[in-house]
Amino acid sequence: MTPSIVCGIDASPQAHQGLNLASLLAERLALRLVLVHAVPAATPDLLLTAPTRVPTNVDQIDFVGRDTGEQLLDQAADTHDVTGDERRLEIGNAAERLCAVAHEEQAEFVVVGSRGVGTLHSAVLGSVSTAIIRDAPCPTVVVPPAMAGPPLDGDRIVCGVQDDEDGPAVTTALRLSRKLKTQVTLVHVLPAGVEVPPAPPVAAPDANSGFEDAQRHALQSMRSLLEHASSDRRGEDEQHRIRFRRGDPTRQLLELAASTEAVLLVVGSRRRGTLRAGLLGSVSRELVRNADRPVVVCRRKPPT
C-alpha cells in the first residue's frame, strides 16, 4: 500500500483550509490523500441536548449524520480529485477514528484544521487535535483558520529543538524541506537572562569554550541531529541553519517563523510525564492555538 496523508474534514471553513494544505502536501510528497469524516455514534443522550426541529429518534440522527457526512466527502473529493476508495466515513469519536484510519492507511501525516483562540468550539477542537497529536502513528499537521500567506509559498521551515530527543522533529523537517525545496532553521530557545551565543554555521567545529554547559549541549545536540538526519544527503543540506533565541519559547518561535516567512513550524511533543514534557506540551499547544501558519507536531523520542 502506498503511504498516505489522512485529512479530517467537516463543514467548517477551518477544515477547508486543512484540506487545501493536505492536498498540496499530498501532491508535493507524492502521497495518497485520504479524506475522513467522523460521525458521532448516535445515542439517546443526543436527543436530550439536540435543538428543536431535528430528528427525534436515534435511527434518524444516525441517518442524517451519515447522509451529511457522505455529502461532505463527495464535495471534498470532487474538488480535490479524490477517488471513492480514498474517502472514509467513520462512526465514533473523531480523534480515535482519525488515528485508526491513519494506522490502516499507512499515513505519514494527519492533517486537521484549527479554530484558533476564542471561538465557541475551540475547546472541543483542541481536545480532538490534542488527542490526535498524542495517539496518531505519525506527525500531526494543524492548520490555522487564517494563514499568513498562500500555503507552502516560501523557502524556510522553522524547527524548534529542545534537546537530542527531538530527532523525529528534525528528521521530519529535513524530509519536508527536501520535498518542498526549502531550507530548515533549527531553533533552541534559551531561558530569559541567559546570554544568546552567536549563530554558528552548521559545519563549525565543536570547540565552544565560551558557552555555558547548557548552551554547548544544545548546540551539540542540534548539530548531531542535523548530521544524523541528513547523513544520506550530503551536499543537499548546506543552507540549513542553527539559531539561538532567548525568552518565551512560543513567542520566539512564532516571531522567527514570521520574520523568515516560514511555510511550516515543526516541533516535538511527548505523550506524558515529566516536568519538561509538560513544558514542551504547553509550547506545542500554544503554537497550535496561536500560529498563523501550519504547525507540524511530532512525538518526541522517549529517553533511553
Rank of each mutant, 00 (worst) to 15 (best):
M1F: 01
P3M: 02
S4Q: 07
I9F: 01
A11P: 02
A15G: 13
L21E: 11
A22Y: 00
S23M: 09
A26D: 02
E27V: 14
E27H: 14
A30H: 11
L31R: 15
V34R: 10
H37P: 04
A38I: 07
A42T: 06
A42M: 06
T43V: 12
T43M: 04
L47H: 03
L48G: 10
T49F: 06
V58L: 03
V58K: 05
Q60S: 14
F63S: 13
F63L: 12
G65Y: 00
G69N: 04
G69S: 07
Q71H: 05
L72E: 00
D74I: 05
A77Q: 09
A77T: 11
D78A: 15
H80T: 07
D81G: 09
T83G: 14
G84I: 04
E86H: 14
A94S: 12
A95K: 04
V101Q: 05
A102W: 00
H103E: 07
H103K: 04
E104D: 10
E105Y: 02
Q106K: 07
Q106L: 07
A107F: 00
V111I: 11
V111C: 06
V112W: 00
G113W: 01
S114I: 04
R115S: 14
V117R: 11
G118P: 08
H121P: 01
S122K: 06
A123P: 02
S127H: 10
S129R: 12
T130N: 08
T130S: 14
I133V: 15
R134P: 02
A136N: 06
A136S: 12
A136V: 07
V143S: 10
A146D: 06
A146T: 13
P151R: 04
L152G: 08
L152R: 03
D153N: 10
R156K: 10
V161W: 01
V161P: 03
G167S: 15
G167W: 05
L174G: 05
L174E: 11
R175V: 07
R175I: 04
R175Y: 03
L176I: 05
K179T: 12
K179Y: 01
L180W: 01
T185I: 09
T185S: 13
L186H: 04
L186V: 08
V187S: 02
H188Y: 02
L190T: 02
A192R: 08
E195F: 00
V202R: 09
A207P: 01
G210K: 06
E212Y: 00
D213E: 12
A214L: 08
Q215G: 14
Q215T: 14
R216I: 06
R216P: 12
H217F: 03
H217T: 15
L219D: 09
Q220H: 14
S221G: 11
S221C: 13
S224R: 14
L225M: 13
L226M: 14
S230H: 06
R234T: 15
G235T: 10
G235A: 09
D237W: 03
Q239G: 15
F244Y: 08
R245M: 13
R251Y: 08
L253C: 10
T260E: 13
E261F: 01
A262W: 00
L265S: 06
L265Q: 09
L265T: 13
S269A: 15
R271N: 13
G273P: 02
G273M: 06
T274N: 08
T274L: 07
L280W: 00
G281D: 05
V283H: 02
V288G: 03
R289L: 13
N290Q: 11
N290T: 10
N290S: 12
R293M: 13
C298F: 00
C298D: 01
R299C: 11
K301M: 13
P303D: 09
